[in-house]
Amino acid sequence: MKGRFPISRPVGAARTLIRGRPRMEIVLHLGAHRTGTTTFQHYMRDNVDALARRGIGFWGPLRTRAIVIPGLFPGPRIALGRDLVRRAEGRVRMQLALAHRAGTRQLLVSDENIIGTPQHCLRHAALYPAIGDRLARVGTAFDGQVTRVVLTLRSQELFWSSLAAFVVGRGHNVAGSEALEKITHSRRTWRDVIMDISCALPEAEILVTPFERAAGQPDKLLATALGSAAPAVKTSRWLNRSPNLPALRKALALRGRNPDELPDGTGRWLPFDTRQSSQLAEHYADDLHWLAAGADGLAQLTEDPTRKRAGSSLPAGDMTKGQRHDKGHPPGHLAHSG
């Protein structure tokens, strides 16, 4: 893992004050992708005014992709004579200062693309291979104020299946047998992702929630993230659902590709065979066992003891697009972000 790490930060009571004033607590909700992030972000926007009255601020993808991500994770640069990373850090800190002066006590930042993209995961056949470097940059930009990280995990065979369907719906190629086999044999699991988070943000508390036990409950996720009561869910929604096989076949045909690249059927696309699915599920079971055993002190597995085991489907609700389609669109659109 490469990148710039904070060298030293105040700890304990010292880190709760800035020049005699209470320091703003920053909570990062990092996803992962395909674990209800868009539904959670819409829930936060539904309740942003009520939360603001409690001193709780929210930065979602509409904001982070304008003020946090640009420049902080630069690709090939054009010689502009400017340090894009330093400019990004200054932009983030300026916005943090404005939020603090406005009375924000807790700031929740939610954007799954902070830790990487679906395309990058699939390209490398690995779970967020650059997360350590990316979060080290985030920690520096947020000036060491990140106090808590919230991560939602999903069983690997369903995570990768949903990711593969998502990128095909966005115009990318169908994952072939070689790519699927490479994913199956990847030695990188959620445990490695969590260890990278801990290395990059060593002072932050890491809370981990299995998607299977938290699906359709954004209020419970917010309560976990903030450590306090959260507004009740007003509208049951299932946003950014993976496109099913008919939708994916249609998307391929519209792009001039052969729909027969995908199997027949009407339900969810499950590209892995029985052997591959079993192997991926076994990795997830090992991850959960490690978390339940204490995760070597790096993270805490959070569970709702009143929650019954989730079924194979999420709760019924609107199935709409992501951040750019908050209003004015009827249900039934394919997902395009989150």
Rank of each mutant, 00 (worst) to 15 (best):
M1L: 09
P6F: 02
T16V: 01
L17W: 00
I18D: 03
E25L: 02
H33Y: 03
R45C: 06
D46L: 06
N47V: 00
A50D: 11
W59Y: 02
P61G: 02
T64F: 09
A66L: 05
A66N: 02
G71V: 10
L72C: 14
I78F: 15
G81M: 14
A88G: 09
A88H: 13
L96A: 05
L107G: 04
S110C: 10
D111Q: 02
G116C: 01
C121N: 14
A125C: 07
A130K: 07
G132Q: 06
A136F: 00
V138D: 01
G139H: 03
R154W: 01
L163Y: 05
R170I: 03
H172E: 15
K182Y: 00
H185M: 15
I194D: 11
L201T: 01
V208P: 00
E212A: 06
A214S: 05
K220G: 15
S236R: 00
W238P: 03
A247Q: 09
K250R: 14
R257L: 06
D264G: 07
G267M: 04
W269N: 07
L270C: 00
P271E: 05
F272M: 12
R275E: 15
R275S: 08
Y284P: 10
D286Q: 13
W290T: 04
G294S: 14
G297L: 11
Q300W: 05
T302R: 07
D318V: 02
R324W: 07
H325R: 11
D326G: 02
H329P: 02
P330R: 14
